[in-house]
């Protein structure tokens, strides 16, 4: 409950404060956000599966973000940044979809 409120608070703060993304973070922030979303949906699914663990969630959240950003960074260095970003987004998107499907089955049996 509190994390959900925190999410809303964060969104509102972002809208109100209207910060500028630093140039060095611009390629990584979108991927990091998608990775974090994946971790969040994974966490919700774990809750419904009854196997949620705070530590695991925190670690997976942070590692997701770091790994996603690192992949993009690596891709930029190798000259395939755009393609790798697309790949990461596709993989994370698929995971988010499967997690959401699992959540839906738990909550609505459908």
């Amino acid at each position: 409950m509190i994390p959900a409120i925190g999410l809303v608070v964060g969104i509102i703060a972002g809208l109100v404060l209207h910060p500028t993304v630093p140039l060095w973070a611009q390629p990584y922030l979108p991927i990091a956000v998608v990775a974090a979303l994946d971790a969040v949906f994974g966490g919700v699914r774990a809750v419904l599966d009854g196997i949620f663990d705070d530590k695991v969630f925190i670690v997976s959240f942070l590692s997701n973000v770091v790994v996603a950003a690192f992949i993009v960074f690596l891709g930029d260095q190798l000259g395939v940044g755009t393609q790798l970003s697309t790949g990461v987004v596709v993989v994370l998107g698929v995971r988010i979809f499967s997690n959401v499907a699992s959540i839906r089955r738990h909550l609505f049996r459908a």
Binding site: P3, A4, G6, L7, V8, V9, G10, I11, I12, A13, G14, L15, P19, V21, L29, A32, V33, A36, L37, V40, I58, F61, L62
Partner: peptide
């Protein structure tokens, strides 16, 4: 983390 995510998302 959630606050950070929301902030990053909105930004």
């Amino acid at each position: 983390l959630a606050v950070t995510l929301g902030f990053a998302l909105a930004t």
